[in-house]
């Protein structure tokens, strides 16, 4: 059994994820607090002592600063609070941000929402139409018209 965040810190992390990668309701793009992201983060922290300590420290500080006014379950984290945290703990914050981006964008659904194929890119890949000989001829005509373009030596 590796490292596990307490339920209180999981709650803080969920709110943090929402702020780090906001969703886009109009485009039906999920926020960072989406299925799979938390699981990825928890899995990553489980066996990595350094990473776990960094993230735990960060979340604990958020938690402590916000629960002075409210109980842990009601604590509300703001973007301003996260900005302060980023300037106070740049290394720890950078670790969380990097891990969040990796977790969020490694999911097929995130690629689909951004217009990419959700599939593993092999073997299907993507279709890119070949330029016709005529189009290439037209595009390169001004370049060819200049003649040889290298230093003789």
């Amino acid at each position: 059994m590796g490292h596990q965040l307490s339920s209180e810190l999981v709650n803080v992390l969920e709110q943090t994820l929402e702020l780090l990668i906001p969703g886009n309701v109009t485009a039906a793009i999920e926020s960072g607090n989406s299925p799979g992201v938390m699981a990825f983060l928890q899995q990553s922290l489980q066996d990595d002592d350094v990473l776990y300590e960094r993230i735990r420290t960060l979340l604990t500080e958020v938690s402590e600063s916000t629960t002075t006014a409210a109980s842990a379950s009601q604590a509300v984290i703001t973007a301003e609070r996260l900005h302060l945290l980023e300037s106070d703990h740049p290394q720890e914050f950078a670790s969380l941000l990097r891990l969040t981006y990796m977790a969020y964008y490694s999911r097929a659904v995130a690629r689909r929402q951004l217009g990419l194929g959700p599939w593993p890119v092999h073997p299907q890949g993507y279709t890119v139409p070949e330029e016709s000989a005529g189009l290439l001829q037209t595009l390169t005509a001004p370049v060819r018209a200049r003649g040889p373009f290298y230093r003789p030596c």
């Binding site: 702020l19 780090l20 990668i21 906001p22 973007a79 996260l82 950078a94 941000l97 990097r98 969040t100 981006y101 990796m102 969020y104 964008y105 490694s106 995130a110 690629r111 951004l114 990419l116």
Partner: peptide, 19 residues
């Protein structure tokens, strides 16, 4: 691809802004 771009692009390794 999106993850590589979000993490700063190929060769740079500095994440784009959050929020």
């Amino acid at each position: 691809t999106p993850m590589t771009f979000a993490l700063g692009g190929y060769g740079i390794d500095r994440p784009i802004p959050w929020g």
